[in-house]
Amino acid sequence: MGRVKDDYRSLSGTQKAAIFMLSLGDDHAGRLFEMMDDDEIRELSQAMAGLGSVNSNIVERLFVEFADHLSTTGSLVGTMDSTERLLAGSLSKERVDLIMEEIRGPAGRTMWDKLGNVNEAVLANYLKNEYPQTVAVVLTKIKPDHAARVLSLLPENYAMECVTRMLRMEAVQKEILDHVERTLRNEFMTNLARTARRDAHELMADIFNNLDRNTENRFMSALEERNRESAERIKALMFTFEDLTRVDSSGVQQLLRHVEKDRLAMALKGASDDAKDMFFRNMSERAGKMMKEDMESMGPVRLKEVDEAQAEIVTVAKQLAESGEIVIAGSSEEDELVY
C-alpha cells in the first residue's frame, strides 16, 4: 500500500495535478485526458498510480488553493499574446501562426467557417464600420441564412448599399479576397477572442455549481475564511435549483416540457417547499398527483443523486434562458418582473 500523503508542501506540481484528476471523477477526468498528448497522459498516470492514500485535508486544501488562485489572481488565465510568445520560443513561426489562428475565435477550418459561428449581432456590429464592398464580399462567403440575419441588423440604408454591391459583384479577385481574410483574421477575430475571455469568478461559479452540495459548502466556507469578497462574488454568480423559483409560470411550464419526469421527481425529493410548490402549481392536478406518488415510491434517495438531477434541470433552464424561451428574473429590484 502506498504511503499516506499528509504534507501538502512536499507535493510536486504533477502530484497536485494527479490528485486533482482523481478527485474530479471518471467523466470530467476523461474529458481532460482527451485534451492531453501522450507524454502528458503518461506522466500524469504515473503520478496517479504512485500517490497511495491521500489525506482528505490535502484534497480540500488543493481545491481551495485552486479556487483562491483562479478567483483572485487570475494566475491560471493566460492571454493570446503570452501564449503566442510561449509557443514562439519552441516552434517555428509557421506552426505558431497556424495554432494561433485555430484558437483565435470560433471553430472552423477556414475564415469563412469561423465567421459562420460568430453571433450575427457581433458580426453586424463589426461590419457596419467597414466599406460596403467589404461587407458584400463577406456576406457572399457565409451561409445565406446567417447572411440574412446579419443583413437585417445593419442600418437600412447601409444594408441596401451592401445589397446593391452584392448584385453587381462579379468574380472577386484572389488578392482582394486574401486581403479581406487577413483583415478579418488580424483585427476582428483577434479582438473577438480577447473580449470573449471569461471572468474568473464566472468560471468558478460554474465549477462550484457542479460540485455536490457537501463539497460546495465545505469549499465555500474555506474560501470565505481566506477571501470573503471573492466568495461573495462567486455566490452572487452561482445559479442553483432553488433559483428556479424566480422563473415565471409560463417559463416553468416550458421547462416542464423539456425535463424528464423521473429526473424532476428525483430533484424535488431534496428541494425546498417553495421550489416544490412552484413546480406543482404549474402542473395539472393529475400530473402533480402522479409526481408526488413517484416521489413517495422512491423512498430514501442519496443526496448525490438529488444533486445530479437538480444540476441537469438547471442546465436545461440555462439553455432555455440563453435561447430566450424562458426568463429568469434577477434577485434585485431592477430585475423583478412586472405584470
Rank of each mutant, 00 (worst) to 15 (best):
N217S: 15
R42S: 06
K5R: 12
R31Y: 03
D335C: 09
L11H: 00
I58Q: 01
V137K: 10
Q319F: 01
E120C: 12
A148K: 13
T72E: 06
V259G: 03
D335H: 12
S230H: 13
L151A: 13
E334P: 10
D206E: 14
S92F: 03
A267Q: 07
G288Q: 11
M48N: 04
V135K: 13
V64R: 08
D262T: 01
A121Q: 15
T140S: 12
F279G: 06
T315Y: 02
V118K: 11
F66Q: 05
D145I: 09
R182T: 00
G270D: 10
I176H: 02
T72Q: 09
E305G: 03
V259D: 03
A287L: 13
M298Q: 08
E202L: 15
E175Q: 15
S92K: 11
R228M: 05
A148E: 11
M189H: 00
Y131C: 13
M189T: 00
S221I: 00
L11D: 01
D27V: 11
Q133W: 08
R228G: 00
D335F: 09
L139Y: 06
E308G: 06
L264R: 13
E322C: 04
A136S: 14
T79V: 06
A171I: 13
R168G: 14
I41N: 01
G324H: 13
F279S: 08
Q319S: 08
A107C: 02
F279A: 08
V172S: 12
L320N: 11
A265R: 07
L177K: 15
D145S: 11
T110E: 01
M266P: 03
Q46S: 04
R3M: 08
K289T: 09
M166Q: 11
M189P: 02
T14V: 12
T14D: 07
R42I: 03
E232M: 14
R246L: 15
K292F: 03
K304D: 10
M111A: 14
E224W: 14
M160T: 06
